[in-house]
Design a protein around this nucleic acid. Structure first.
Lengths: 350, 350
DNA sequence: TTTAGCACTCTATCTATACGAGTGCTAATA
DNA sequence: TATTAGCACTCGTATAGATAGAGTGCTAAA
């Protein structure tokens, strides 16, 4: 038996342990692994190998006389090189896409359905990182006067259906004519500018200009600054928190569940993490301690971006205990992300 | 001792039991009650009275040799006639109002802060029933063309800062001129109409009219129908789900927690319930089985509407186990509701 | 009417014990 | 040299019995 054969068997055994543990949530013993292994081997041999796997830091024992449980590193190896991600059939993908199309074709509703679908199919909590105007570029704005000192500022982004409205209170009254002038000014001078840079750009102009534009720039700045300051960079739609509590690991230790839910309440930090993970067009898996967020100690997520015309518009993901069916969930998350991308890409619900 | 004295003592004892149980989450025995009672009585007497209270269905024993626990009916009597709701000092109210005012003055942010405040002070989950355009009357609409067959429909309500935007896909292209005509038509012909009636009204006109208006009515109907169909009647902002899991009753029985979180996911039914409870300007308390919602078996909520100029704009509430500090939570919920109302009433953040 | 006293009930806790799952090691085996 | 049968050992879990303690309801006396 050469080295490669050795490796292969080790890996196979690791996979069996992980898959059995994922299915049962109970530490896996050598006997069970031996029974599952294709070329029949004795449990004693398995024990030796499992000992090695433990020394390698891929498995661990809850206590001396228990079976083995995968470590974060064990899952990592499995996810990176061992698991095979199932393929969904054309029909299944069609079915999913069909379910994502629904009565209402707005992006908001589409993402809501996607969350529901993920949660239902994965039987886990799911999250969706939804695009907001603020990450796009200014395509158009509209001002709707609501009173002399109050105006609704409608921001429209250059990507599919990104828009937002914000009420802005003004110190100085704003006349009808001024509104028209402002809209014209902004829609001619600032289009194409990323929303994030709009305020900076206006501030710079304010310093430079002293001419007749000054007033326009000043007022635009006032309004856009306020409108943009209340607009979040992203939104996180979370669904299926109840599934967290239902998992055996969290039932056994309600404190763990509490900490996770507590952590989830600070959506900000999860968003940050997910965003930084979704820069490429790939499924990302974060396992246990790889997630440096308070409360997520025993959790993993699988996330994938939806990419339209080369741009990452947002992402979807499934969140659960480290004991997660990574192959299945990965396939699921990727399929849903692709479905969303294809729906968004093809524009209006066909 | 006359009948009234009897009653008074019974009630006093019920109150003591409830307050002790709320504080400790442990069944309350006669000894403890005797020690707390002002005019010193023996535990034997208390036992007799507690026996009566049990017969009356206000207390119950988890098992023969345990102390007593309040029933839903016991809490109900306590809430209706026995508890005294604490008063917040002027300073405390100011402090709260101050915390509700924040950097951002939009209603959305205000309500978000209110939820955070409630959750933090009550150490329980809180919810907020937020007003939407759909429950107000049409004050103005604006149409922003996003493409030849796509338009952003901005709905503005006749109440403080109620508005919404929806993208509407059109079958037929829409020209600039048509947009102007439509906006003019809607903003002159339909203002003041409750949004709920807008579609009906247009449909009736569609049947009646065959003249030149027909086209306008038809297209308005198309757009408004789509825009309104995706607009919810209400929104429910839920916060502090983690506190639910932290409560001892739910820690002991994770299944209960799971059922409640599951129930919470269907925000629709909770909204319905809360809305129907908040028709008057009063704090409403729902105790245990009085909430006919699946999953809420061992839960109560305390809710209060925020009322501006005689109209119920929305509501706030605290949700937790039936073992809740009703006096404190009631005071809290009412104070927050009033604060919100006063901020909304006085218009822009003063 | 109240209360001291007491027997009774039931749970929670502890201990002891047995059980069994799973391990690691050793020695025999192919 | 790799594998495996065998076995002693460990340790968690399940079971049962004993104990303590909290709280009750009842009775009889004050």
């Amino acid at each position: 038996m050469n080295v490669s054969d050795f490796e292969q068997r080790r890996n196979k055994i690791l996979s069996v342990v992980i898959e059995a543990y994922v299915a049962s949530a109970v530490p896996v013993g050598s006997e069970l692994v031996a029974r599952r292994l294709r070329p029949s081997v004795s449990s004693a041999t398995i024990r030796n190998v499992m000992g090695e796997l433990e020394e390698a830091g891929l498995l661990e024992q809850p206590h001396t006389s228990a079976g083995r449980v995968p470590t974060d590193r064990g899952y990592r190896l499995y996810v990176d090189s061992l698991m095979d991600v199932p393929w969904f059939s054309r029909e299944q993908v069609m079915e999913m896409t069909h379910r994502l199309h629904g009565e209402e074709s707005e992006v908001e509703q589409l993402l809501g359905r996607a969350g529901g679908l993920l949660t239902e199919l994965a039987q886990q909590a799911s999250f969706i990182l939804a695009p907001t105007v603020k990450r796009t570029a200014l395509r158009q704005i509209e001002l709707v006067p609501l009173g002399v000192r109050k105006v609704l500022c409608v921001l429209i982004g250059d990507q599919e259906e990104t828009y937002a409205s914000h009420v802005v209170e003004l110190i100085e009254p704003l006349s009808r004519e001024e509104v028209l002038a402002l809209v014209r000014f902004i829609n001619t001078q600032l289009t194409g500018l990323p929303y994030r840079d709009v305020v900076d750009s206006l501030e710079r102009r304010l310093i430079a200009e002293t001419d007749s534009f000054y007033h326009l720039v000043k007022r635009s700045l006032d309004i856009l600054q306020h409108a943009l300051s209340t607009e979040p960079e992203e939104r996180l739609l979370l669904e299926g928190a109840s599934y967290i509590v239902a998992q055996p690991e969290f039932r056994r230790d309600p404190g763990k569940a509490h900490r996770l839910l507590k952590g989830l309440e600070d959506a900000e930090s999860l968003m940050e993490q997910v965003r930084s993970d979704l820069t490429t067009d790939r499924v990302r898996v974060r396992i246990g301690r790889e997630l440096p967020l308070a409360g997520y100690e025993a959790c993993s997520y699988v996330a994938a971006p939806f990419v339209v015309e080369g741009r990452v518009l947002g992402g979807v993901g499934v969140l659960g205990p480290t004991r997660m069916d990574y192959p299945r969930v990965s396939a699921l998350v990727e399929a849903v992300a692709r479905s969303i991308a294809s729906i968004l890409g093809r524009g209006p619900a066909a």
